[in-house]
Design a protein around this nucleic acid. Structure first.
Ligand code: NAD
Ligand code: NAD
Lengths: 244, 244
DNA sequence: GCGACTTTGTGAAGGCGCGCACAAGCGACC
DNA sequence: GGTCGCTTGTGCGCGCCTTCACAAAGTCGC
């Protein structure tokens, strides 16, 4: 169950620094817009219409406008949106106007790939520590970060005021990792292990399960195949009609 | 735009081998149920109620029953569901009753982690090839698979009848990778690069962007912080009330 | 300054998914 | 064989999300 902050109080907030609730679906798209807008900025595009941004993100233009309108009305009718200002606004709304400290638990294949990934620091996430229990992994530097023993977790979380923890341990150790993260003071968790972890109320967990993604794909792939088989049966035979 | 097979024809299909459309939200949960049910099987639990499964998956029990009912009615009232039969049914529905061949494009950190990951073969996915363009990476074995040059992609896809491709290249090369995958005959793509790739109609793409996940987390984290700040302002000061 | 054109912001409608609540069905026990 | 208790399967209302459509509001050219 995703923790959802109960916010009856936030209906009519102060006009500036808007704090109305943004729908989950919109929050999931804002980072994509942000990415595209930053690319536009690099190409020295100063202005963009909802139609253009929609084409880049492969979504409906009205959806783009409604998404952006949740942050306030920053567009100019007849012209479009100022890219730089939009980038600023989305950044602020997503909380990217300051750095976030992150710790990773589990220094295996995935943990190492994550800790060495440049895309995180680019976006304002600072990996403050990578932790493991296997002595063979400890003190080895991966991706510019020295692996520490898990026992040092509480200390690092407290010192660096870490609020986000990533679980990259085997499934069997994920619940333990979550418990330790929570006890250390982390309030949000990104879990890559294929298990459901239980956390106290108020702590939020996002699960990213790559096997699940593949299984969703194969469901659709299988439907495609059976649909094609049925078509063949109807048409007598013949080629599967190409990507129209 | 997610490719959605137009299926007006499938409303009243043959009674056995049900092929009605399953809602996307349900398809995304079935792999999680499957995982949990397999664990139950390992613990020699032969029967399970929707309540129990719901607790394990941290979802509503009615949702579980409705999800399962899309595959047909396989439960026994007053008793629950036969775990083994349920595993069989979900497997069949997701297309996991046979192996799926997968290729990975990009043998960097992520590509190597993925190709060595045991969880995929456990679930019936067979990595048929890992491809790169960097000569330094080619012919090196990663995770039991030898890295091949990208030019060999069409050949491998055709020979092994690969239908699923994974993109683990830098963002700048992702569109090229997608084009090559499609041209080789792959019909579904799992994209880890933080870009929107364009594909012909009929090809489906799922994007997994870890940075986006972190940004969704930090949005909620930031709301939590400002909410706490407002509370402090109201209460005069004092501790942020703990996870109730 | 005015008209034509462009693009935003949003009201309203439709669709989808969630969860309640309950009838229907099954087993167990007497 | 009947009753009782338990669990499934699902109809229904509700709320969220998407999309259409259009008035409002701005720019540009003259
Ligand atoms: N490798 C992938 O591509 C991939 C893909 C999808 C999902 N996953 C999931 O990600 C997780 C990690 O995968 P991986 O391939 O990196 O595994 P791995 O075995 O390479 O690494 C796991 C690491 O966790 C450490 N560890 C074990 N118990 C621990 C504990 N209690 N506390 C802290 N650290 C502990 C181990 O020492 C090891 O270094 C797994 O749950 C896996 O299912 C991985
Ligand atoms: N490493 C991570 O943890 C992580 C996390 C999130 C997202 N990603 C994304 O995943 C992708 C891969 O990340 P990475 O860390 O493995 O990068 P990487 O630089 O380690 O590896 C990229 C690999 O792709 C190869 N490559 C480059 N151009 C290619 C082409 N045209 N065709 C085939 N191969 C090509 C390179 O030779 C290299 O081996 C990136 O898009 C990245 O943004 C990675």
């Amino acid at each position: 169950m995703k923790a959802r902050t109960s916010d009856l109080s936030c209906k009519a907030m102060s006009p500036h620094r808007s704090r109305r609730r943004i729908p989950d679906a919109t929050v999931a798209r804002l980072p994509i817009y942000l990415q595209l807008l930053i690319e536009q900025l690099e190409n020295e595009v100063a202005n963009i219409s909802s139609d253009e941004l929609a084409a880049l993100a492969a979504v409906n233009a009205a959806k783009v406008r409604k998404d952006l309108s949740y942050m306030g009305s920053y567009g100019t009718r007849g012209v479009g949106y100022d890219v730089e200002y939009l980038v600023y606004q989305i950044r602020r709304e997503l909380g990217l106007d300051h750095e976030w400290s992150v710790v990773i638990v589990g220094a295996g294949h995935l943990g190492q790939a994550l800790s060495g990934y440049g895309g995180f620091s680019e976006r304002g996430y600072s990996i403050e520590g990578v932790f493991d229990i296997d002595d063979k992994k400890i003190d080895v530097a991966v991706g510019g970060v020295r692996v520490r023993h898990l026992d040092e977790l509480p200390q690092v979380v407290a010192q660096r005021s870490v609020s986000i923890g990533v679980i990259a341990t085997p499934a069997s150790a994920a619940q333990d990792a979550a418990d330790r993260l929570v006890k250390s003071g982390v309030t949000s968790i990104l879990n890559f292990a294929p298990v459901v972890v239980n956390v106290p109320f108020g702590i939020s967990v996002r699960r990213v399960d790559l096997s699940v993604e593949l299984q969703i794909i194969s469901y659709h792939e299988q439907r495609r195949l059976t649909a094609a088989a049925q078509l063949r049966a109807v048409n007598g035979d013949g080629s599967i009609n190409a990507t129209a």
